[in-house]
Nucleic acid binder design. Structure first.
Lengths: 194, 194, 194, 194
DNA sequence: TATGAATGAGGATTCATTCAT
DNA sequence: AATGAATGAATCCTCATTCAT
């Protein structure tokens, strides 16, 4: 049982690597098989189609973000600290596995396929919902400014994340992502503050 | 007047439409030719290669944004008003020609080609430079908050633009973009303000 | 025995047939696939590109000639007999597989591709080196005239081979190549003799 | 009248240059037009088709060789001297206009087209007939060896020419063709001599 | 679980040629 | 005498997928 699951995950991981290093256009069944050192038909043992694989990838993205969101302490901290925790956790995971940073850019990734892109948008929405929820709570408790809608601010939070990650990717992953993230958050903090 | 629009421009416009409606993966020579109701080889009279076409497209994006940037009044207004003017002009143009809104998402568009993506990044940089320049001036004159770097704020400005445009596109271009833009800017204003 | 002949070899053989019957310009992926009764993509399982196929073909030519050269007795005969042996062996093989006679005309075949033509020239050189070596030895031992450089004579030997093969091909392979070869060699003999 | 003829010749000359520098596969209507700095349809004013152009080219080759053959003194010299004269004249012309040296390699050039290759072979035959005729006369007069058929010897003469020209072309036309030709002929002489 | 061989559809591009101007 | 725009057929090659083994 374990073996089956790990093989699937291995394939998904490799697919992720290809996407993040060469773009989704380079994620072909051939390239994926080559990277995994198996033949192409072998992949069809694990996924019924390429769409199935992409779909699984999207689900994986979602699970990954959910996992991160759950890790950040739900209470006992201010909303701003929770956003800070989100930054910290995400950037720590991205540093471990840079390919995962694609999760922040998914909406452009799968635009070509109606069904897949719907799936992807729901993940984006989920991420925004999470951030928005934190901020809304913070606003209610007076920790966060109230003159800008939480949804709007969640986009600023995400936008800043993307800025940091984009810089990091352009640098060829040589920048210290966590440090850059901290620096960026110190400004986000000021913008969110009352 | 319409006749002045050269065959090249007509092709580029059609390419733009395809990209924005179906994604760049659907921009094939075949699809483009079909949309223009000519055969594929006909396109090669006007562009030496598909890359040449894409490159021209990127240059067009850059020119478009430069044009917009130049239109916004350079003086006699506050920095925040100038940013507002940028919003207004861009959204007005996007409404006229929705495909142009792709300009805000170019960095994800051409990630698959090293040389093209370099070209694209320089446009993104140009846009950010423009916004950052406005904000920096504003900060110096005390119109804009000084505790957050101008570059950081330019990302918030751009991020918000993207948010608005994304919503608009998801709506199938049925939303009133200009109104949504005004609403969004009213919040950006507050965040940028001292 | 026939089964041992791999798919690759089968493809190369067919390519060879096309070249020798219709010229290298007719050796298109489409024609080759048609001749093999498969679709074009099927060929790409066996060769990464048409160039790869052509390259393999050239290597095959070289191996073929090396094989022939090794068959001719290295000692116990005069230089002139060895050249005669070369004639005999080559013409016998050509009769079995007319397409192979292209080996004598390779330098004109691949002139369009720098890298391939370099490869081809090295085969031509190898053939000449072989013949020249035989003649040089013969000249040293006094079996062959010494007033004309061996290299020069090797061109006469090759030139005569080409003459015979050209006649044979023009005849649509109806001439008896071995007999024509023997006749031609009887004159070459006189020219080479002291 | 002169203008029309010279335009045609100019085109043929340029075609010749392309063939000899890049191979016949590079002689496309597009390339030819580009080299002449006109558009493609312009060429169709002068030749009804590409075949027509190639045919004219072949005729030109033939005329060129006929011209050379007529220049060599018909009498008052030995057969061997006449062959030497042929060498001298041909190599002098080739030096002036390297592309013309293709005339020696025409049989491989147009193999892909039955009708054209027939035309070409008749030129080759004509060249051989010329040389053979000289040698036959020489043999009758006892200036040339009689134990080898004249046709056979004409191939040696031609083969040696090709050897020299091939070396010269490989050298990028930097070798002194006339000198190399003289050297080669000094050996041919010995082989032909009684 | 995997492979070798194949496929139909489509990718960008080049070919010689035509036609209205 | 020449051009701008176009075309049908072909070029090599890649795509996701299937199937017998």
């Amino acid at each position: 049982m374990k073996t089956v699951r790990s093989r699937r995950e291995e394939i998904l991981d490799t697919a992720l690597d290809i996407i993040s290093s060469s773009g989704i256009q380079r994620l072909t069944v051939k390239n994926l098989a080559r990277a995994l050192k198996v033949t192409e038909p072998a992949l069809y043992r694990h996924f019924t189609s390429k769409r199935d694989l992409l779909y699984s990838l999207i689900v994986m993205y979602g699970d990954f973000f959910s996992g991160i969101a759950e890790k950040t302490p739900a209470s006992g901290t201010t909303a701003i600290d929770r956003v800070g925790g989100l930054y910290r956790e995400l950037f720590r995971e991205f540093t471990k596995r840079p390919a995962l940073s694609m999760v922040l850019f998914t909406e452009e990734l799968f635009r070509f396929d109606r069904q897949l892109s719907r799936e992807v948008l729901s993940i984006i929405e989920m991420i925004h919902d999470t951030i928005e929820g934190i901020l809304r709570n913070g606003a209610r408790r007076g920790e966060v400014r109230q003159d800008v809608p939480s949804r709007q601010m969640s986009w600023m939070v995400m936008g800043t994340m993307r800025l940091v990650v984009t810089k990091w990717r352009i640098s060829g992953y040589t920048l210290n992502l966590s440090r850059e993230g901290r620096k960026a958050f110190s400004f986000v903090k000021k913008v969110l503050a009352k």
